[in-house]
């Protein structure tokens, strides 16, 4: 029994180390092809545009709708508390600050992890099952350069843009609720929001979203390359891709927020 357990732990640990090793190689190669490699050999512009459309443009509606809802929810919850102390005008501070610093980047990252991260895994996974990755290699085309780099660059470019969109939509939604049902004046909300949110809040959020972009792409792509066998494996890896991304996003956010709390 003990031997069985130890054996199990050993095998799991071995697998984890092998996975880590693979992930490190993936990160290493991706870093090379995104930087030096793309200067030397160029970027596949067509694929980049295609991925940017898939990752960025097609996510606009869902990101906007969810950010709008979150802005509304925040405004209503804030009003609930602030009404009691008669400080309704601070609804603007609360909504805009929490969206710019936390909710905008994180929500966008989670939506994109569910949409595009999962799509990355499914695409690469099914290519692996259908021997398409092997075909790429035998044709002398590097799968990292060919498949991963356009996704990585598209994600790095589009996730901050989507985050800005989410920030803006969420703040406007807070204003809409403020004016429509809390009796705030639009001008007052606007002035208060401008006073509350500093440039560094927005930029801090964007920096976070860059790190989330790395997490989503690398996890999605890595899980895709781990697919073995058939369609079941693609499904399992896709689930695991989304769960791992979201977990790491929240972990990273936790880390960043702690850091900025300590240093300000």
């Amino acid at each position: 029994m003990v031997r069985y357990l130890l054996g199990y732990i050993g095998r799991q640990a071995g697998r984890a180390v092998a996975n880590l090793h693979q992930a490190a190689r993936l990160i290493n190669q991706t870093a090379y092809w995104v930087t030096i490699g793309s200067f030397k050999k160029g970027v596949r512009v067509g694929s980049l545009i295609h991925e940017m459309t898939a990752v960025g443009f097609n996510s606009i509606p869902i990101v906007a709708v969810i950010a709008f809802c979150i802005g509304m929810i925040l405004a209503l919850q804030a009003a609930y508390q602030l009404r009691r102390i008669g400080a309704m005008v601070y609804v603007a501070d609360l909504v805009c600050l929490s969206i710019a610093r936390e909710l905008g980047p994180m929500l966008t990252a989670i939506i994109v992890a569910g949409r595009s991260g999962a799509a990355f895994t499914a695409e690469i996974g099914s290519m692996k099952v259908a021997e398409e990755i092997d075909a790429l290699v035998t044709m002398g085309l590097n799968p990292i350069k060919f498949l991963v780099v356009p996704k990585f660059m598209a994600m790095l470019l589009m996730l901050p843009c989507l985050t800005l969109l989410a920030d803006l939509t969420g703040m406007v939604a807070g204003g809409v609720i403020g004016v429509a049902s809390l009796g705030l004046d639009a001008g007052v909300y606007y002035q208060q929001a401008l006073r509350a949110v500093a440039m560094k809040d927005i930029i801090g959020g964007l920096v976070k979203s860059l790190s989330f972009a790395c997490i989503i792409t690398l996890v999605g792509v890595h899980q895709g390359f781990l697919v073995e066998g058939g369609a079941t494996s693609v499904g399992e890896r896709t689930t695991s891709s989304v769960v791992t991304s979201i977990f790491l996003i929240i972990l990273a956010d936790c880390f960043f927020t702690t850091l900025s709390y300590i240093f300000t």
Binding site: M127, A130, E131, E132, D134, A135
Partner: peptide, 8 residues
């Protein structure tokens, strides 16, 4: 390849 492996 066995499955032709065309890019879909």
């Amino acid at each position: 390849f066995q499955s032709a492996a065309l890019f879909n």
